[in-house]
Design a protein around this nucleic acid. Structure first.
Length: 439
RNA sequence: GACCCCAUCGUCUAGAGGUCUAGGACACCAGGUUUUCAUCCUGGUAACACGGGUUCGAUUCCCGUUGGGGUCGCCA
């Protein structure tokens, strides 16, 4: 029989990382088994389920490369089938009508629990049992005639031929109900697997306040989809060896549900950032260029007159300092504007230090005298010989220039940076800095 | 509160009775490289929640305690 899993989000406008992690596990599981991964949109809450909200789900899946088989099934189209099954349950005596606790506008259909203990074998949690007295009957069709989640969920899973239901831990209590429904309907029971929740440092459900909780937020921050995918996959699952940075194919090959942990875990933003850097390295320079440009456009820092060759040179120069596309705009804006800010601390420490401006003036003279091309080797040699002549440490020469041309004390190697900026910019910036600080 | 589930370094995890003086990764600290930061290299700090069993032997099995999570809707 074909292994068939599904992702069944209700479109609310956001896709939570815990939810998308469930989608990732469903996807990995079915791909590993050579089966199918289906999508069902649980859009019965018409108020929240707007086309835009549905599109958000589709976008998140597409961004992460979670391809699904066939067309999505919209739950709202299945209403007749749901009610048909409810009627069948009614005639079978597995359900009854009741007006208790209702709206007074009619009778609801209530599913009758079998009165026996119910247990099932969870693929990650093992055997779970619930005693009969802890199981209560529940409504499957409201008194207004609309199907409730439990009915739609189970009926649709049957309709879609789902063989493995892989979902969040918050569904284990529902599963006892669902197991009873499968039995009553007489449909083959799927296997169940419940995944631990993703929590914050306080052990509470991960929310937007903890940094970012929705797929779109990570996308906006400039994370790579494969980095988020990789990190999320590793939250609660591991391949069994020491590998951490994995490709999709490697994860597909290694994925099994018995390697999923049962304890909730926290998402570590710092490690995600590291992971992003790892995946960034695996992409080529061209990708980095395109990604950084797009990020700068979003940040409002991009200008059409930025020379492509210059832009690429800046990126090469920044090297592995870029861990997120947005880092370029945040850490290297001075490459693209003369209005870069001066970091107060660096100015105090490197420029206003005793004799620093005098040194900077000497350096300016040396640099001005250099012929083109203004290479890293040339400026390096020039400043080293100046250091020798004056008996100074290289650090005393390097720092003032760095702060003068970039406004900050940290950044790429100075000589590479000077070469990229070019002689005229460098000279102009040093002059302006000298004038600004009374040199 | 009731019911279900969980518990290894700060975090993510490996570990399926002896191989554990508990391994890896991120973070952190120290040293090296370097003009700074980052990278890179080397080293280091750091964990089996607690108490009982079972066993010749428990991180691994059982029970309890503590702590944490989930669920108790005519929401999904």
């Amino acid at each position: 029989m074909t292994i068939r899993t599904r992702f069944a989000p209700s479109p609310t406008g956001n896709v939570h990382i815990g939810n998308i992690r469930a989608a990732i596990y469903n996807w990995l599981f079915s791909r590993h088994a050579g089966g199918e991964f289906l999508l069902r949109i649980e859009d019965t809450d018409l108020e929240r389920s707007t086309p835009a909200a549905v599109q958000t789900v589709l976008d998140s899946l597409a961004w992460l490369g979670l391809t699904y088989d066939g067309a999505p099934l919209y739950q709202s189209t299945q209403r007749a089938r749901h009610l048909e099954v409810a009627e069948m349950l009614l005639t079978k005596g597995a359900a009854y009508k009741s007006d208790k606790g209702g709206t007074g506008k009619g009778e609801a259909i209530v599913f009758k629990m079998p009165g026996t203990d119910i247990s099932f074998r969870d693929l990650v949690k093992g055997e779970i049992t619930k005693k009969a007295e802890d199981l209560k009957d529940f409504v499957i069709v409201r008194s207004d005639g609309s199907p409730v989640f439990h009915l739609g969920n189970v009926v649709d899973d049957i309709t879609m031929g789902i063989t493995h239901v892989i979902r969040g831990d918050d569904h284990v209590e529902n599963t006892f109900k669902h197991v009873a429904m499968y039995a009553a309907i007489g449909a083959p029971m799927p296997q169940f697997a419940h995944l631990p929740m993703i929590v914050n440092a306080q052990g509470k459900p991960y929310s937007k306040r903890d940094g970012a909780a929705y797929v779109g937020e990570f996308q906006d921050k400039g994370f790579l989809p494969e980095a988020l995918f990789n990190s999320l996959a590793l939250l609660g699952w591991s391949p069994g060896d020491d590998r951490e940075v994995l490709t999709r194919d490697e994860m597909i090959a290694a994925f099994t549900l018995d390697r999923v942990r049962q304890a909730p875990s926290q998402l570590d933003m710092t490690k995600l950032l590291w992971m992003n850097g790892q995946h960034l390295k695996r992409r080529g320079v061209e990708d980095l260029v395109a990604g950084c440009r797009a990020a700068m456009q979003r940040q409002g820092l991009w200008r059409e007159d930025i020379d492509p060759a210059y832009f690429q040179a800046v990126i090469m120069c920044m090297g592995e300092r870029i861990r997120l596309y947005s880092d370029l705009g945040e850490q290297a804006a001075f490459f693209f504007t003369e209005e870069y800010p001066y970091d107060e601390k660096s100015v105090r420490k490197r420029l206003l230090k005793e004799g620093a401006l005098a040194i900077l003036r000497e350096e300016l003279e040396v640099l001005v005298a250099l012929p083109e091309p203004f290479t890293a080797e040339a400026t390096d040699a020039a400043l080293h010989s100046l250091a020798e002549q004056t008996g100074r440490q290289m650090g005393d020469l390097v720092h003032p220039v760095r702060v003068a041309v970039s406004g900050t004390g940290v950044g790429p190697g100075l000589f590479e940076m000077l070469a990229v900026l070019g002689k005229s910019r460098v000279v102009a910036r040093i002059r302006r800095t000298l004038a600004l600080y009374g040199g």
